[in-house]
Design a binder for these strands. Structure first.
Length: 791
RNA sequence: GGGCGGGUGGUGGAACGGUAUACACGAAGGACUUAAAAUCCUUUGCCGUAAGGCUUGUGGGUUCGAAUCCCACCCCGCCCACCA
């Protein structure tokens, strides 16, 4: 007589096994351990004051399923977690509430850690990192000095976002729709000397490297667009009455005869030099007004173009004609040479501008409908001896004729890393009296972030406020240092290399040991949100390529395979946010249903990479499923489930590898529904427990224990299936007449064509629809379908 | 304006070109209970009493057969946005 199982107590069970895993160090990944290795990584979170929300676990559970699956398959798995702890929100909280970011961050990390542990995620917590810890940011600073030594970090005057009300510099993320995120004041641009990293040096490599990566095609495309490679020609225009020339970049050298004016950006270095004396005043006024334009105005005026004539002419090298030079802010100072040749007949923006200021429009590529601007290709017109030549050929010919240079331009800009903020890694630089930088030596790192800082927005970097920080060590004074750099680094610098630190997180001699890097890196599977496609993911690739070029690592791409988890929306189908009040707290869900239910529900709700609304009712379904599994009682014989488990093994194995977690869970449900009906043996039950372990580890351990094991289920081996038992011997086949379903018959898998058709034709419903018609064709797909085609 | 996704029941979603709507939620009915909760059973795309017909955003095409492939269009979401 089988005794009734005790009710499943998720709180007691989950606490018990979490303690067990921690005590036995079940999920530790040992360097140099048995092969094969696999490194499965989540994008680490920013430990916000709100704690984990229900969206975080979506990705974490997905990667945890993979990690557990590979452990059960005998892999040595590295599956770490850490915290991207520097950043603006902590500092803003400090300004608002007077809590020091260091204290606040520590508290948040503690909370996050306990929430993550409550989910039963199998991280190796010994490797956890905190980017705001000196033992970590020391190496972020070291990385900066390395880049500097290799001429990949440099200073430049650049515009920063400035909030006039808060009197502070803002990061791009803090500017929303042209306004300060905090006080909603309109943000203006201010010039400052800033540090930049030369990511543009790697544009070509960053582009080429994408091809071999197992990443979502859309993410690769996003990076390609972001890098924005553009093939074209450099052309020089002589300026009448000046020794100087104006250099432009164009992708349409074929339209050179149609270039009826030039436009310089307001920031163009030679603009004032070549401006005619009589136009100086208006040009200066224009430069000033466009410089003062706020982000908001730029967005608003994007459609109406403005500009002024600078009183000077250039010579079109193809036509020999004098063409006027204008200044206009529809030309960007930061792309190409900050100057363009305007071809109004074949460019929308130039066309609009020319019409507004009554500049000549000359058609040089035949527009089939006569409509201008015409952006397509075609035979040239009005182009001297190149008339009639197709534009595809003309580009090269004209370039050659006028001595142009074929070149490539990129949209990618260098990475500005200076932040005039407190809560970040100090840039390890001092300056002499002339403002020349003196790098802090690696042995003097870290440059510690001081504690004695007032959080009042003054506009200056908060670090300048610290007496302790401003002090300059003697050996740097001797070298002429009189001032420290008070800016901190963009937090994306911290996160551009953290995945390497996990391989050897305690190392105090190097950012990570060679042996450890060689063993674990690159990351085999990386999981995180799409929002990092053009930010973090690009920066991490850049830093990896730098270290590779310098011979410090052997791999040149950090993340072999990348997948994005979809957003979890609120029940109202909107993005979860505090202001909407639709945020679901995982703590509540875990208390009510347990971590296993939360894990399974998040995997079950839909395809892993798709945005899906949370459903409070939906979690009830998996909760019932868990209770049903627990309620199963083994019996001596159950041939149907003994057979069905093979199909389940195949399905779950394939689905985990393809990350189709939702359909894996449906098959679990189908199997358990069957087991409820026809029973299950202890042996099959044990197999089921192993299959469930990656999804519902606590339940799996509890079942395993109940079935008599004294070991962790994670010391078990992933089951294999018998291919013979996966295919059914008899199958139901659809019978159609003219493509319409008229009935089904059950046939043996290997039934021959003639026999199958004969059996199908015997069906009453089929006979009825065949009456009075002539069969012209009979299609038979074994195991699938029979179709009678009639006339 | 450009790029990338996506439109399947009341809802989340399944479906190597081969029985569309698996699995789950919700709903309705029933069993157990003094009652409720929990649990279990049955039904559940739409129209129709039925036979049958219709149905994967819309319209066309390829095919014996299309949610799936091709063409055109409509709608929704996300990202980038004067990059010459």
């Amino acid at each position: 007589m089988a005794q009734k199982n005790a009710k499943y107590d998720h709180q007691k069970t989950e606490a018990k096994w979490q303690k067990f895993w921690q005590r036995r160090k079940i999920f530790k990944g040992a360097t140099g351990g048995r092969e094969p290795k696999i490194y499965i990584l989540d994008m680490f979170p920013y430990p916000s004051g709100e704690g984990l929300h229900v969206g975080h676990p979506r990705g974490y559970v997905g990667s945890d399923v993979l990690a557990q699956y590979y452990r059960l398959n005998g892999y040595n798995v590295l599956h770490p977690m850490g915290f991207d702890a520097f950043g603006l929100p902590a500092e803003n909280a400090a300004i608002k509430a007077g809590i020091h970011p260091a204290i606040n961050t520590k508290k948040n990390i503690k909370r996050f850690s306990s929430q993550l542990k409550a989910l039963g995620l199998s991280y190796d917590w010994n490797r956890a990192i905190d980017t705001s810890d000196p033992s970590y940011y020391r190496w972020t600073q070291w990385l900066f000095t390395l880049l500097h030594k290799n001429k990949l970090a440099y200073q430049k005057e650049a515009y920063v976002n400035w909030c006039p009300k808060d009197k502070t510099v803002l990061a791009n993320e803090q500017v929303v729709g042209g306004r300060c995120q905090r006080c909603e004041a309109v943000v203006v641009q201010k010039k400052r000397k800033q540090w930049l990293l030369k990511i543009t040096d790697f544009a070509e490599e960053l582009l080429a490297g994408l091809d071999q990566l197992d990443w979502p095609e859309s993410t690769k495309e996003l990076q390609r667009n972001w890098i924005g490679r553009s093939v074209g020609t450099d052309l020089e225009f002589k300026v009448v009455g000046h020794a100087r020339t104006v250099k432009v970049f164009t992708t349409r050298a074929d339209t050179l005869f149609g270039a009826t004016y030039l436009v310089l950006a307001p920031e163009h270095p030679d603009l004032l030099t070549i401006t005619a004396a009589r136009c100086r005043k208006s040009v200066n006024a224009y430069i000033k007004s466009s410089g003062e334009k706020t982000e908001l105005e730029r967005l608003a005026t994007a459609k109406t173009k403005t500009g002024v004539f600078i009183g000077t002419y250039a010579i079109n090298p193809a036509s020999g004609q004098n063409i006027p030079i204008w200044v206009a802010d529809y030309v960007l100072g930061s792309y190409g040479y900050g100057a363009i040749m305007a071809v109004p007949a074949h460019d929308e923006r130039d066309f609009e501008f020319a019409k507004q200021y009554k500049l000549p429009i000359v058609e040089v590529v035949n527009s089939p409908g006569g409509k201008l601007p015409y952006l397509g290709e075609g035979p040239l017109v009005n182009s001297g001896r190149f008339g009639g030549m197709p534009s595809s050929k003309a580009a090269g010919a004209i370039t050659k004729e006028v001595g142009g240079q074929p070149t490539v331009q990129y949209r990618l800009r260098d990475w500005l890393i200076s932040r005039q903020r407190y809560w970040g890694a100090p840039i390890p630089v001092l300056y002499d009296t002339k403002g020349q930088p003196i790098l802090v030596e690696p042995r003097d790192l870290p440059v510690r972030l001081p504690q004695d800082v007032e959080f009042k927005p003054t506009g200056a970097s908060p670090l300048a406020d610290s007496k302790q920080f401003s002090r300059i060590p003697q050996h740097y004074r001797r070298r002429g240092a009189v001032k420290r750099e008070f800016d901190t680094m963009d937090t994306f610098v911290c996160s551009s290399w953290y995945f390497m630190r996990y391989a050897d997180s305690d190392n105090s001699k190097a950012f990570a040991g060679k042996k450890q890097l060689a063993y674990w890196l690159p990351v085999d599977v990386y999981i995180g949100g799409v929002e990092h496609a053009a930010g973090h993911l690009l920066y991490a690739r850049f830093i990896t390529k730098v270290l590779h070029r310098l011979g410090l690592v052997s791999f040149d791409e950090p993340f072999r395979k990348l997948r994005h988890q979809g957003l979890i929306l609120g029940e109202d189908n909107e993005k979860m946010s505090k202001s909407r009040g639709n945020v679901i707290n995982p703590d509540d869900v875990i208390e009510g249903y347990g971590a296993d239910a939360l894990r399974m529900y998040e995997m079950f709700m839909g395809p892993f990479d798709q945005a899906i609304p949370w459903s409070a009712a939906g979690i009830e379904g998996v909760w019932r499923f868990i209770k049903r599994v627990w309620g199963l009682t083994p019996r001596a014989k159950a041939p149907e489930t003994d057979r069905a488990i093979h199909k389940l093994i195949k399905k779950v194995t394939g689905d985990i590898e393809a990350m189709h977690f939702n359909t894996a869970i449906s098959s679990f449900m189908e199997f358990v529904n069957l087991a409820m009906e026809v029973g299950i043996t202890a042996k099959t039950f044990k197999t089921l427990a192993i299959l469930l372990a990656p999804f519902a580890p606590h339940l799996a351990e509890a079942l395993n224990e109940r079935l008599g094991s004294r070991q962790s289920i994670f010391s078990a081996v992933w089951p294999t299936f018998d291919p013979k038992l996966v295919v059914a011997s008899a199958v139901t086949i659809a019978v159609q007449v003219d493509g319409r379903l008229r009935g089904t018959i059950v046939l043996l898998m290997d039934t021959g064509r003639a026999e199958a058709i004969k059996a199908a034709a015997k069906l009453d419903t089929v006979k009825k629809h065949l009456q009075g018609r002539r069969i012209t064709k009979q299609h038979y797909v074994p195991g699938r379908i029979i179709n009678f085609v009639t006339r």
